[in-house]
């Protein structure tokens, strides 16, 4: 979609996301609108499976720009997030050059951009594409505090300093979306540099709309019943891993593929493991009562 990002509106964002199958409510669209117009990173938190990562993917696809993804994990460091020197190639270059070149020339050669392995943050900063890329920093809560500190510099200045080369500043600020499942509290510094959006479970009508888009051909009766059943499961006391939207979609797909056109006790019994991933959670569901409530 060809849209000038400097004059984008909330309605444009809704349209862009909708064109690639992401049903965004006004809150989500406003957050994305502000992230683009204010050129600020957007921190998206919420329950797992509520469409946080999908939001970044849909935005990149809708804008027709590159999606650069950095998956966070414990132990993630600068060499995996920013850049790393290509040591094997540097060693080969040294062996080849040591007979003919002077030491200073060798040094200049091996510390040139040619031997720099660009990791996601540097790739986002040096992207040459016409539109700014979407940088997805996924599950930032899994990374260590040291990595958060490293992100602070990048997110405030959008620049990276490579001691041997100098400072590389992004010519176009990427659209940055950070996601977190709140397994730990993201630091205050990072929070304050970002706009903030909390995505909770969607309203019934929005969830139904998502299902219609993501599972084309699903019968209206089945879609309604699946949404109601998932909402009832979420409200069951003591369910540890509450099903998100992704589980709703998977469940509807499974039921459709198995040829069910409406929810029945047999259908739920055969497919409940698609929507609940823990045996103790499955035990908490009274299938008979669930189906009767949905049918009521």
């Amino acid at each position: 979609m060809d849209i000038d990002l400097n004059s984008i509106t909330v309605e444009d964002v809704v349209r862009i996301l909708s064109s690639v199958g992401y049903v965004a409510d006004k809150r989500i669209a406003t957050a994305v609108f502000l992230a683009i117009r204010l050129e600020k990173p957007l921190l998206v938190e919420g329950e797992p499976g509520c469409g946080k990562t999908e939001l970044a993917k849909a935005l990149a696809e809708g804008l027709g720009t590159e999606l650069i993804r950095l998956q966070c994990y414990e132990g993630l460091d600068a060499s995996k997030a920013l850049y790393e020197w290509d040591y094997p190639r540097q060693l080969i270059a040294i062996r080849l050059l040591e007979r003919f070149a002077k030491p200073e020339e060798i040094e200049r050669e091996i510390y040139s951009e040619k031997y720099l392995l660009k990791r996601p943050l540097l790739r986002a900063a040096t992207s040459n594409s016409e539109k700014p890329p979407v940088l997805l920093i996924d599950e930032v809560d899994r990374a260590d505090e040291e990595f958060e500190a490293l992100l602070l510099e990048f997110l405030s200045e959008f620049q990276i300093t490579v001691p041997e080369i100098g400072t590389i500043k992004a010519s176009k600020k990427p659209i940055v979306i950070l996601t977190s499942n709140r397994t730990r509290e993201v630091g205050d510094g990072l929070r304050r540099r970002c706009l903030y959006l909390y995505i909770s479970y969607p309203e019934r009508e929005r969830e139904l709309e998502i299902l219609r888009r993501k599972v084309p051909g699903i019968s209206e009766k089945l879609a309604n019943e699946v949404v109601d059943a998932v909402r009832l499961i979420r409200s069951i006391d003591g369910v540890v891993k509450k099903p998100g939207i992704s589980e709703t979609i998977e469940w509807a797909r499974a039921l459709k593929e198995m040829g069910f056109t409406e929810l029945s006790e047999e259908a739920v019994r055969n497919t409940l493991s698609v929507v609940l991933k823990l045996p103790e959670d499955i035990e908490k569901v009274d299938i008979e009562s669930l189906v009767s409530k949905v049918k009521r």
Binding site: V10, K26, R27, T30, A31, L34, L43, E45, R191, R192, C194, L195, Y196, L197, Y198, S200
Partner: peptide, 19 residues
């Protein structure tokens, strides 16, 4: 009013418990 509220909320609130 909804849009105005969302703009302020996204810019000013960084903790869902404060919503």
């Amino acid at each position: 009013m909804d849009l105005f509220k969302e703009i302020l909320r996204i810019s000013l609130v960084k903790d869902p418990e404060q919503y």
